[in-house]
Amino acid sequence: MTQPLHTANLLDPPLELPCGAVIKNRLIKSAMSDSLADGEGNPTEAQSRLYERWAEGVIGLSVIGEVQVDPRFPEKPGNLVLTNQSNLKDLQMLTSRASINDAHIWPQLGHAGGLAYKLLSQPKGPSPLKISEFECAGMSEKEVSLLPDVYARAAKIAKKTGFTGVQIHAGHGFLLSQFLSPLFNHRKDQYGGSIQARSRIVIEIIEKVRDAVGGTFPIGIKMNSSDQLEGGLSQDDALEVIRILNKTSIDLIEISGGSYFPGAKSSSDSASSGPYFIDFAIKAKSLTSIPLVVTGGFKKREQVIDALSINAADSIGLGRALILRPDLPNEWIDGEGVTPRFPKFKSPPQGGITAWYTMLLTAIANDNEREFNLELLPAIQAYENRDKARVMRWQAKYQL
């Protein structure tokens, strides 16, 4: 049944960012690690087609997850990399196809830090740490001080190759999230201690990126509402980060939560039937004039309408719903109440659901999702084997 026009209009209005850029509607494809690069940090035909599919589906903004600023600390060997070794022509092909229909396409500038892929990295976080099977070295003060320039160089490449903005990744347990979290950040210098000090490197990166890309190029950030880990970033500290970000030139703040820390329960694997972070988003909205996106747990059109109608956020981030139905924004904006059919998995291993969805992404990127029939365990095996097959290419490219 078609919804009343006034509710459809909540999804359709453009969102103007502080820098002056305009996102054409209120639906965003949040960052997911699609793992579709070529094993040397460059985009592939399949990856370009995937983001073209979402642009065809009328998404306002797509964010490419886990685009690495330093190949020594990748999340996975299927990540894109933005450095002076990047293939600019292939990146331009990706962005030209991903930006049809006036869609925005942003890379999520990331550094895995202590969660870097161990077959390619010697992980380093804010502090040396060993918790159960998790172990990483700590960064020196000089290494930390170089990070803003590393992010700024990646942002300049993004702008040069046709990306329409960038998102700085400070969530989900990766490096900048680790700096914000007292569980990971035990530093005694200017980058550790109070939440203001733990935020320092994030603010320095924002300032350097802004200098690199200019005042009219969008810069977003993704951050946790909490780490959902004992001793991690609390909601009170996360709200203080919102206050701090409000004084910067950031154009869009995306709220999520949780961590890929070993043993942590993923929010996206939750059995919850509703959005996860609405209450936090409402509090955050009162602390900032910067447009806010809330991501996590949105499965139904009415959930999106409800969040927008109570002004919990300015836009809604969607993830797995857009894997199940890449054309969902077009349907929802047209007033159709279609709900994706989410599969249910019995006792999945950690990371298994993510692997299944990532392999479905691969099918979409090859326009053959109708033939996708992998069960959970074969999907996990295919996902892991693909990453391992790329290790030698990555090592050769970056001389690791």
Rank of each mutant, 00 (worst) to 15 (best):
G319N: 13
N373D: 12
L36F: 13
I282D: 08
T164A: 04
K24W: 07
Q235G: 10
A355M: 05
P43G: 03
A321Q: 05
Q68M: 15
V304W: 02
D90I: 05
A158I: 00
I221P: 00
I64S: 12
A31M: 06
R325C: 12
S177M: 05
L10F: 12
L129C: 11
I290F: 01
A264M: 01
G171R: 02
I310L: 10
P343S: 02
Q303R: 04
I206L: 02
G274M: 14
S96M: 13
L115P: 03
G231F: 08
T95R: 11
S347E: 13
R210Y: 05
Y191V: 03
Y398Q: 08
P378Q: 02
G258T: 01
I201K: 04
N385Q: 15
G114P: 00
K208V: 04
L27E: 00
L176S: 01
W394A: 04
P275L: 13
Q190E: 14
G41Q: 00
Q108D: 10
F163K: 07
L61P: 00
L175Q: 04
P128K: 08
T339P: 03
K142Y: 15
K124W: 06
V22A: 03
L176A: 05
L129Y: 08
I219R: 07
E207I: 09
T2H: 07
I64C: 13
E375R: 09
E66I: 06
G173V: 11
S199M: 02
G193P: 03
G258E: 01
P18C: 09
K283L: 13
Q178V: 11
F277R: 03
G138E: 03
L120G: 09
G352W: 06
K397W: 03
S273G: 15
A170M: 10
L287R: 14
D227I: 05
S267V: 12
A197W: 00
S140E: 10
G351Q: 05
I364P: 15
Y151L: 03
A37E: 03
G173N: 01
I203G: 02
M223K: 00
L115E: 02
D38Y: 03
G162A: 05
E141M: 10
H186R: 15
A137L: 14
D90N: 14
N246T: 04
H6K: 12
R210D: 07
Y357C: 08
Q3Y: 15
A103Y: 08
P13K: 13
F184C: 05
S286N: 09
T362M: 12
A313Y: 00
V213T: 11
Q122V: 13
T83M: 01
V391G: 02
E371A: 10
E40P: 09
L318E: 01
K160E: 15
G39T: 05
I168E: 13
E254M: 09
P275F: 12
V294A: 02
D306R: 10
L322Y: 08
